[in-house]
Simulated assay, not measured.
Amino acid sequence: MTTAPSPLTVAVITASVRDGRLGPALTDWFTDRARARPGLVVETVDLRETPLPLTLPEPGQEPPAEAAAVRDALRAVLERADAYVVVTPEYNHSFPASLKNVLDWFLAEWAAKPVGFVSYGGLAGGLRAVEQLRQVFAELHAVTVRETVSFHTAWERLDAEGRVLDDKAADAAAVTLLDQLDWWGRALRTARAERPYGT
């Protein structure tokens, strides 16, 4: 008799910290779909609620106590996660500085884990931010999945209450993204258990 595989833990990261941001609405939309999928446990990280200073401590040095507390809380979520989804806008053909800062604060936590993207913006739908993030995550030894969910002219995709309007294409894209994230998440989790990454 085979046992059911253990749930896959996915951390969904809201990247924008600006006033008036659309990120939380898109995060809610995506996490609703992820949580409805059997075998997934979803945790959320809002970078506006978990600010880290732009000045990183020297190697081997501890940051101030408040920054250390935020770092440790974020580290715990990132370490638990088997996979990540980044919900990001496109700012000036790139991704938010708040996200780059968090990526720079951590290293081993990202390694040998898959990353998916939900992007949003104007005509490009945030895809230029995603293409740059693929390069950054490769340097962090993470694996980015091919399929994305992108919201073009995103402000037109929300109703008066700030909720994402029904969108069959976006729903289908989310299913495909989650399929790939689930496959890579389980495959890499098994590989890390058999042989720690980097050994």
Score class of each variant (00 low, 15 high):
F137P: 01
E161C: 07
R134D: 00
E156G: 11
A124R: 13
G122K: 13
A142V: 02
E90F: 12
V115N: 00
W110K: 09
G162T: 11
W105R: 13
Y84E: 00
H141D: 10
A97I: 10
R146W: 09
E131H: 10
V136H: 02
L107E: 12
A142K: 05
S119A: 15
A142C: 09
S150N: 15
T148E: 01
S94A: 12
T88A: 08
W110S: 02
F95W: 03
N101G: 08
A154F: 09
Q132I: 04
T88K: 09
V86Y: 08
D104A: 12
V143A: 05
V145D: 00
E139G: 14
N101M: 04
W155I: 15
S150R: 09
F117T: 01
G122H: 14
N92S: 11
E139N: 02
A142P: 05
R146M: 03
G162C: 10
D159Y: 15
W105M: 06
A112L: 11
S94H: 04
V115S: 07
N92K: 05
V130G: 01
S94G: 14
G125R: 10
A142L: 09
V87L: 09
Y91M: 10
H93A: 08
G121C: 04
A108F: 12
A160I: 13
L99S: 06
V149R: 02
G121V: 14
E147H: 15
P96L: 01
H93S: 09
R128K: 14
S94T: 15
E161L: 10
V136Y: 04
V130T: 06
E90W: 12
F117G: 00
L107K: 14
G122Y: 15
H152F: 09
Q135H: 15
G125F: 11
A154D: 03
V118N: 09
Q132E: 10
E139V: 10
G126T: 03
K100F: 01
K100R: 08
W110C: 02
Y84S: 04
L158D: 09
V143E: 03
T153L: 12
R134S: 03
A124H: 13
T153V: 13
R163C: 07
A138L: 04
G125A: 10
L158P: 05
L107Y: 15
A129E: 06
L99A: 06
P114V: 02
Y84T: 01
D159K: 15
S119N: 12
Y91N: 11
R157F: 10
A112E: 13
L103K: 02
K100E: 00
V115M: 02
V136C: 05
V115W: 00
K100C: 05
V102R: 11
Q135E: 12
T153P: 01
Y91F: 13
E147V: 08
A111L: 08
A111Q: 13
F137T: 00
H152G: 10
S119W: 08
Q132R: 05
L133R: 02
G126L: 03
R134K: 14
R163T: 14
G116K: 03
H152A: 13
F151M: 05
E161W: 14
D159F: 14
